[in-house]
Design a protein around this nucleic acid. Structure first.
Lengths: 122, 122
DNA sequence: GGAGTATTTGGCGAAACATGCAAATGATTG
DNA sequence: CAATCATTTGCATGTTTCGCCAAATACTCC
């Protein structure tokens, strides 16, 4: 039995949806900030709340979205809940996107400089 | 001059926002499907539309979101517009999340099996 | 067990997003 | 240049997400 057009199977669609959920979870500044902090080690909700500055309930909901997507896990210890990163490869992807954005900004300012030079030249 | 608490600078906030925009752009099944297709080479809008099956206008809007986030670029050639992947590291991250999701599914079914065994045991 | 701290949940209004249709734009071909 | 094809844009609508508040829950310390 051979798999024809694997990209159209139901299994593939489910995988894409699960992956999209991961991206969606990471696609919010507060959540991404927290995840970045978690690349340095586990943190309790209160620490993450101090980091992002929103209401605790908002932070808690953000964290539950990240957990639902399988990006982080939580562990209750005493009165606190500690969150930690599960999806380690976020770290390297963040580094890559960081470089990418820096490069884009550099390219942009070079283009602007060229444009200015051209304008003053004629 | 020393940089104190770099994670709170305006520059860092801007970076996080740009990165979050990338994740958000990827956080939609249709967009992710198209990006995955683009990891195999450039495609015109019509090909991508055939892939995802939505209205062409919807597909075009999705593509403009991906372009705005710096994930893809477009190039007009003749009557067609060809999109191609700019952010190459998406590929490896997709592989990683794919493995991660497979693993999670496996763990889940093992847990269920254990639970069933336990139940039939008592 | 009562006060205080940490976290989650429910609810609600505002803002953002997704989608399809219709219309506009741009290129090709006869 | 009229007809057609590929793509984008404007608009209307339904859906989702965000962020706060208030209330519920869970734990610790006296």
């Amino acid at each position: 039995m051979q798999m024809i057009e694997p990209q159209r199977t139901a299994a593939h669609r489910r995988l894409i949806e699960a992956q999209a959920e991961i991206f969606k979870a990471l696609g919010h500044p507060s959540r991404l900030l927290m995840v970045e902090e978690l690349t340095r080690g586990e943190r309790c909700v209160c620490e993450l709340q101090a980091l992002v500055g929103s209401d605790v309930s908002t932070v808690s909901k953000h964290l539950s979205i990240l957990k639902g997507a399988g990006v982080v896990r939580d562990e209750k210890r005493g009165a606190n809940v500690y969150y930690s990163l599960v999806l380690g490869c976020v770290r390297s992807f963040l580094e890559c996107t960081g470089r990418h954005i820096d490069q884009a900004a550099q390219d942009l300012s070079q283009d602007l400089a060229r444009l200015a030079a051209l304008r003053s030249g004629d």
